[in-house]
Amino acid sequence: MRALTDQEMKTVLDKLANYMSDLKSLIAPLEDGDRYVFRLNHSRVYYVKLSLANLATSISRDALLSLGTCLGKMTKTGKFRLHITALPIIASGARHKIWVKDNGAQPFLYGSNVVKAHVGRWSEDCPEHQGCVVYSMGDVPLGFGVTARSTAEARRLDPTGIVCFRQADCGEYLRDEDTLFAG
């Protein structure tokens, strides 16, 4: 386990900034004087409390399976892929949101894109190809994706038109159970 390098940190934060409006809250000091840090182990990036990260140094790299919250994976080409496990962190400071109706929640959780007919409401002034978090009508985050159309264009779209391309949904906890945390 190690801290991130300059470039890695930039890549991770750049990706997170697509979905979140306020990144500063990520590393803001906590009430107990502790703070959150980013750690890399087996090409996975973890968002973890510093105190916990310090404790984890006593465990060898091979033996350490996971710690804190797994944000995603660094690819071999140096890019960063967000996992569904990062959803609680992204959802806490989401930049753009889409709420899906109850009839659209299940198709989304089964891996479909969000179509216009399923959208209950969406945040205004959202450009296309911008990261957004998908919520149920009861404000429960279900996953995240990128918008297919801007808000203005989406209004004119027919009901079967895709509004948001799915990137990750909570159904992955079951579907990708084997590979989500290791492998």
């Binding site: 801290a3 390098t5 930039k10 990144l23 500063k24 590393i27 703070r35």
Partner: peptide, 21 residues
């Protein structure tokens, strides 16, 4: 490698990325 672990450098990178985005 040069690691980024101290708060100042992290904040700098964060502010840079945020502004750019």
């Amino acid at each position: 490698k040069v690691f980024v672990d101290d708060k100042e450098s992290m904040t700098t990178i964060l502010a840079l990325v945020q502004a750019e985005k």
